[in-house]
Amino acid sequence: MNEHDPILTVDRLNKTYDSGHTALSDVSLTIERGEILALLGPNGAGKTTLISTICGLVRPTSGRVSVGGYDIVDDYRKARSLIGLVPQEITLEPFEKVWDTVRFSRGLFGKRANDAHIERLLKALTLWDKRDAAVMELSGGMKRRVLIAKALAHEPRVLFLDEPTAGVDVELRKEMWAVVAQLRADGVTIILTTHYIEEAEAIADRVGIISGGKILLVEEKGALMKRLGQRQVRIHLAEPVERVPDVLSNHGLERAEDGRSLIYTTLEGGPPLAGLFADLAGAGIVVADVDTRRRSLEDIFVELVHNGNGDAA
C-alpha cells in the first residue's frame, strides 16, 4: 500500500436487511487520501447504512470494503484503527466527564494514554474549559464537538461524519465547517453525509449522490457544476417585443410571456455575453436591466434523484 493508493475502496457492496429491505445495491466507491467527500441523499437513501457498514456496525450481505488496504472483515483490527466515526445522534453517557469519555475512546482503540494529544484536541474544539464538566451540562453544539473529539482521540486517518450539522443552527453549522476544514488541513480524509446541499457546496472536494441504495454519481464538485450547472440570464427590456428578432435566433433566446424580457440559458463557463449584447443593440433592443441565476447543486441533486439514473438534463 503506497501513499498514492486510495484510502478507502468499496467494491460492489450490497446490504439487504432481514426485513427484505435493500439498503445498498451494488455500491462501489473510491476515496482518495486527504479529500472531503460529501454524500448527498434524501432520507432513507442508504447514506447511514453505507457508513455503518464500513465502520463495522452493519454486516454487509455481499461485497468488499478496504480501508488503508486492510479488509474490514479479514483485517478488521487494522482497518478499524484507521477510522473515526461521528454518529448522527448524540450518543454520550450524560454523567461522564468530557475528559474521561475522550480518554476512554483512545484506550478503546488500543492506543496508550496521551494526555497531551487529548489536551490539543479539546483546545482545538474549544472544549478545554469544559474538560471536567459532565456531558449533560453541555450545550448541543458542545456535545457534537465531544463526539468529534472522541472520534479523533485515536488519531484516525479517515473520519466519517454522519449528518454532522443535522438540526443545528446556522452559527454552529459554520463552526463545524471550520472544524472540518482544519481536520482536512491536518491530512485527515473526511466522508460526510448530509442532506444540506449548501454544506456540500461549501466544504466538499467531491460530491456523491446516493438514492435508493445506489450511487448515482460521484464527481469533483467544480467539474459537476461545470458539466451540469446552468446559468440563466434574464434580460429586462425597455420596450416589450412581440417575438424574438430573427437576427438573435443563434443565441437560443426565449421570450417571456409578457414580452418584457428575454431569457438566455447557457452552461457554466459558456461563451461571454458581449456578443449577445452587441446583437441586441444591433437589433435595436434597449436593455433596461439584467439578472442572472445560477443552477445550484440543489437543482442538480433534485433532478438526479428524481431521474434516479445519474443523468441530469
Partner: peptide, 13 residues
C-alpha cells in the same frame, strides 16, 4: 440504550 454502543462495535476489539 443510549446508543454509545456504536463505539464498542466500531473499535478494533
Amino acid at each position: 440504550f443510549i446508543g454509545s454502543i456504536y463505539e464498542l462495535l466500531s473499535a478494533p476489539v
